[in-house]
Design a protein around this nucleic acid. Structure first.
Length: 281
DNA sequence: ATTAATGTTCAGAA
DNA sequence: TTTCTGAACATTAA
């Protein structure tokens, strides 16, 4: 689940807890899970970061970034089920790694918990870190994309707009859930070839992206029915109650109050939309 | 009891 | 070059 709003919520939830803290240790948790992808190896990272300080907690797309006093940085990708926690986890069995922070009497910990274990943790050198924040691999942050940029990107491809929105190299931060919600608010059919979109539709997509993501951040993200996503204090998000189409197949569209929400599959992912509010063209 | 589905990313193939 | 497919893993629902 963690898309931009959920990762932003993680960052805000751990910031005051981690910023300015010295890293006393970086260790694997004693869980029986298969090992997580950690680059370079966990032991090597532990040596490299011991004694450095976390100077900045920030976000790039769907990744959490812990900048260190050495100029290096941890980059945490929660992927499907990863969480950054500052207190009790949903369960002990899926705790993966711990940062032991502080000195002397003032000790505290920061954890990465991941049920499915698809998440990754990397330690980047300053060059790699600069690349992460450039446009080399990831596109512009979704919250900084204006209609001009959307227009340029849409013109360049015949892929359906919903599929394009998930391409992190074009616009970064939108995931499967928010793509459906954004297109519903923008009244754009998810299967419309991107290059066929006209100016008013593109402007509505740009505007809806900002509104939906900002509102979702205010609600601290979406906790779906499986309950996996939690904030840094292991509390549920609140935006799931505001979803208008996502995971609401068969329900009456809350906008037109007439048509039923439809589920289709695009690029092997579920898309939800209202056939009355979101016409092709 | 199998099969499908679930958010994300990436390698490799078309 | 761009676009598509399947795999990584754990868990739940049908």
């Amino acid at each position: 689940m963690p898309e931009l709003p959920e990762v932003e919520t993680m960052v805000r939830g751990i910031r005051s807890h981690a910023e300015g803290q010295r890293i006393a240790a970086f260790e694997a948790c004693p869980c029986s899970c298969r090992p997580l992808t950690i680059r370079p190896g966990l032991g090597q990272i532990a040596t490299l970061v011991a004694g450095t300080t976390i100077v900045d907690v920030t976000r790039r797309a769907k990744r959490v970034v812990l900048k260190l006093s050495s100029g290096w940085a941890f980059v945490i990708e929660p992927r499907m089920t990863g969480l950054m926690l500052v207190s009790d986890p949903p369960d002990e069995g899926h705790l993966r790694v711990v940062w032991k922070l502080g000195t002397g009497k003032r000790q505290r910990s920061l954890w990465f918990w991941d049920r499915r274990g698809l998440g990754t943790i990397s330690l980047l050198n300053p060059d790699q870190l600069a690349r992460l924040f450039s446009d080399a691999d990831l596109g512009r942050e979704a919250l900084e994309a204006d209609a001009e940029l959307w227009s340029r990107i849409c013109q360049a491809t015949v892929r359906p707009i919903k599929v394009l929105m998930l391409d992190q190299s074009k616009i970064a931060g939108i995931g499967n859930l928010y793509a459906s919600e954004i297109l519903h608010q923008a009244r754009v059919h998810p299967e419309t070839p991107a290059a066929e979109l006209r100016r008013p539709q593109i402007q509505r997509i740009a505007q809806a992206t900002l509104e939906i993501l900002q509102t979702a951040i205010r609600y601290e993200g979406s906790t779906l029915s499986d309950g996996t996503y939690r904030n840094a204090l292991n509390q549920s998000g609140g935006y799931q109650n505001a979803h208008r189409v996502y995971d609401r197949e068969g329900e009456i569209c809350p906008s037109c109050k007439k048509a039923q929400v439809i589920r289709i599959v695009q690029a092997q992912r579920s898309t939800f939309y209202c056939p009355k509010c979101q016409k092709r063209r």
